[in-house]
């Protein structure tokens, strides 16, 4: 029986090998529980990976196309330098638009920190200019030099300084999520291998008799492979459904705290967890098959 044939036999009705190996209650429950727990964790790791992936993409794309020019100067110079800076920006290739923020907009930006009653007009708050790039982008160093010449109080902030570590952090989180998934798969395989070895040891006499009456290793392995594959699969189905339910019940994403509350699945990403049970079944199949053939090779 080849691996492919054995794979198909796993999902067929009871095989001949199943009938000759007695059921093993404890290892069955252990495998089901382990598979369910691992699938539950896998769903969360998947949600983390996908969410951090979205976050990294969003930060990378949204912030990459915006910049801010900050004009810090005396009140009497403020209007003139703002005008000069806007003129420079309007004539710079790669900039789609540049707009000076109004006092109300600047107040709204500071409101979360200082409250609505802050008298912003009487404070030396710098003038901010919002810059939007076009698809070609601009040359930052050249623009800085021109701004320095035309509006000495203007400082270009292209967000690189704080955007890069944020994107890097999100990308690392995404990588950690995938590593966690790989570790969960490996741990599932290790647990199933242990349970399969226990079942094989418990049935050593049955295996010996089967060998003595002419059973081939693949026939004997088939009984264990089928059982553990189905247990891994059905345990993972339960764990995945519970995991998806738990993710669904997480608080929804909001503008105020999207990093912490946006960890769920979005759109077609809800289909991804459905791959967990078949993968758990595949891990169960391979782990048990390797364990069974290794143990059987030790017998005459």
């Amino acid at each position: 029986m080849s691996g492919g044939t054995q794979g198909r036999a796993v999902f067929s009705a009871e095989t001949a090998a199943d009938r000759v190996v007695p059921p093993t209650g404890f290892t069955a429950r252990l495998t089901l529980f382990a598979a369910a727990a691992m699938a539950f964790l896998a769903v969360f790791a998947l949600a983390l990976s996908l969410a951090t992936g979205r976050l990294a993409d969003r930060w990378a794309s949204e912030l990459a196309r915006t910049a801010t020019v900050r004009i810090s100067t005396t009140q009497d110079q403020r209007v003139a330098q703002t005008r000069a800076a806007l003129k420079v920006l309007e004539t710079t290739p790669g900039i789609a638009s540049a707009r000076a923020l109004s006092l109300e907009e600047e107040q709204a930006l500071l409101e979360p920190w200082f409250g609505p009653a802050m008298p912003i007009a009487s404070l030396p708050v710098p003038q901010l200019i919002e810059v939007i790039e076009d698809e070609n982008g601009y040359e930052a160093e050249g623009l800085r030099l021109r701004l320095m010449a035309e509006a000495p109080g203007a400082v270009l902030d292209d967000h690189t300084r704080w955007r890069r570590p944020l994107v890097q952090a999100a990308e690392r989180l995404r990588t950690m999520g995938w590593i966690a998934l790989a570790l969960i798969a490996a741990t599932t395989g290790a647990m199933i291998t242990l349970a399969a070895n226990a079942a094989l040891s418990a049935n050593a006499q049955v295996i010996r008799v089967l060998r003595l009456v002419g059973a081939r290793d693949k026939f004997i392995a088939a009984a264990f492979v089928r059982r553990f594959t189905l247990r891994a699969f059905s345990g993972a189905v339960g764990g995945t459904l519970l995991g998806m339910l738990a993710v669904f019940m997480l608080p929804g994403a909001s503008a105020e705290g999207s990093f912490l509350t946006g960890l769920g699945f979005q759109g077609l990403h809800w289909l991804w967890p459905l791959s967990v049970p078949p993968l758990a079944g595949a891990v169960g199949f391979l782990a048990t098959r390797l364990a069974a053939l290794r143990v059987l090779k030790g017998l005459m």
């Binding site: 001949a16 009938r19 000759v20 007695p22 049955v206 008799v209 009456v213 059973a215 026939f219």
Partner: peptide, 17 residues
């Protein structure tokens, strides 16, 4: 095999082959 009936034990070589 203690969990199988006499007939099943006797037919075991047929089953495994």
């Amino acid at each position: 095999l203690d969990h199988l009936s006499l007939a099943e034990n006797v037919a075991l070589p047929l089953l495994v082959s």
